[in-house]
């Protein structure tokens, strides 16, 4: 089907024909192109970073694949970034403590001699006073004294090694310096920093654990002692 407005075929529409004749006075009048004096040649084509990008963009087959690949890449990069950030946050404290603990280790390796535990540790290491519980009798010294000689030596070695291990594990520099220098006082400066507070918590946990182990060994020694005494009493006529 053809109509005059569309392709100028068929019977002319009176309104369209009149408007054509009226508005035709505004039509383009051909005139030569006026080149300016300094008209340069066309600018070179901009370099393509990805030569296949335009083909991907215009291709209906590859456009969804390209979109899917871009989305997958985006998701993967987000996951990697979040994992990296999480690992970094987790390692932040560990790296700080490792940096701080490397210094006393180097000093300890030089003299190869276990330093005396600071006063604060020594006081925390000591078992709870049994005098109040047992009416002034020193159960601990009695129990250790009742142990066989070899076992006593082994226990002495263990007790000597414990502070050395703890000295190596000490993380907080302020606590160590303050403890050794000022007679074992817990300073506010040591506790106010984050590293100092976290190392203090770690130290307290370690000390509690060792106290528990110490108490269990002591109890075991006492039980063995009592059993031996009971066996001797039974063996007597």
């Amino acid at each position: 089907m053809s109509d005059y407005l569309w392709d100028k075929k068929g019977e002319p529409d009176a309104d369209v024909a009149r408007l054509e004749s009226l508005l035709g006075t505004f039509a383009h009048e051909p005139r030569p192109l006026e080149w300016p004096a300094g008209a340069a040649a066309p600018e070179p084509r901009p370099a393509k970073l990805l030569p296949f990008a335009s083909r991907l963009r215009t291709s209906r087959r590859f456009a969804p694949a390209a979109l899917a690949a871009a989305a997958a890449l985006l998701v993967a990069s987000v996951l990697v970034a979040s994992a990296f950030l999480r690992a970094r946050v987790a390692d932040e404290g560990g790296r700080a403590t490792a940096r701080e603990s490397s210094r006393p280790d180097a000093g300890a390796r030089k003299d190869e001699r276990p330093a005396a535990p600071p006063q604060v540790e020594r006081t925390m290491l000591e078992p709870p006073p049994f005098e109040d519980l047992k009416g002034g009798k020193k159960v601990e010294s009695a129990a250790v004294g009742n142990l066989p000689k070899v076992e006593r030596q082994r226990k002495g070695l263990q007790l000597a090694a414990a502070p050395r291990r703890r000295q190596r594990d000490l993380n907080a520099e302020p606590l160590q310096n303050g403890g050794a220098g000022s007679g074992g006082g817990l300073t506010l400066e040591a506790m106010s920093t984050r590293a100092g507070a976290s190392s203090l918590v770690d130290n307290a946990r370690l000390l509690t654990k060792e106290q528990l182990v110490y108490a269990l060994r002591l109890t075991g020694a006492k039980l063995r002692d009592i059993r031996e005494k009971a066996q001797k009493a039974e063996a007597r006529p």
Binding site: W35, A39, P42, E43, R45, P46
Partner: peptide, 15 residues
């Protein structure tokens, strides 16, 4: 403006 448009087009024909 027609002249202007074509001169611009010639300059940017590489694009």
């Amino acid at each position: 403006l027609v002249q202007d448009v074509f001169l611009t087009a010639f300059r940017k024909l590489g694009a």
